[in-house]
């Protein structure tokens, strides 16, 4: 089922295909940076940026034109020496946290980061209650 849905997400990305632009992709949409270290940095960042039209995918896994354009911008900025996190911040400034798959710690997201701690605490309590006091 889950595959089906992912497929359909993709399909949705492909739907406007009937009204697709005829322009070639942006310079770095389907082209890697010459410097492998820079490309690795760009790739790592692109895998954590959300495609705006396909919604369920990162821009690194999408054929949507806007994802291609965003990849190109990311690569150009990396090439110009910008810090990946600064590029993320630029996009977050435009689109909000939605665009980034890496949630930041904010007023709206602290429970997300508290949850693992709570779970870990619960796990420790459970294990201690199970074994505590009796020793091995």
């Amino acid at each position: 089922m889950r595959r089906a849905a992912i497929a359909l997400l993709l399909a949705a990305a492909a739907l406007p295909a009937a009204a697709q632009d005829k322009l070639p992709p942006a310079p770095y949409a389907y082209t890697q940076l010459e410097d492998p270290a820079q490309e690795a940095r760009a790739k790592a960042l692109m895998e954590t940026l959300r495609c705006l039209q396909c919604q369920g995918q990162s821009i690194a896994d999408s054929d949507a034109p806007i994802a291609g354009d965003m990849r190109s911008q990311v690569r150009l900025k990396i090439k110009a020496g910008e810090d990946p996190e600064a590029i993320r911040a630029w996009l977050v400034q435009s689109y909000g946290d939605y665009v980034s798959y890496a949630p930041r710690l904010t007023d709206a997201t602290w429970p997300l980061f508290a949850a693992p701690l709570v779970l870990l605490g619960l796990a420790i309590v459970l294990l201690r209650r199970r074994f505590g006091g009796k020793g091995a």
Binding site: E47, T48, R50, D97, Y98, Y101, A102, P103, A108, L112
Partner: peptide, 8 residues
């Protein structure tokens, strides 16, 4: 709106 992905 937030997105939660692989980095989390």
């Amino acid at each position: 709106k937030v997105s939660v992905g692989p980095p989390y």
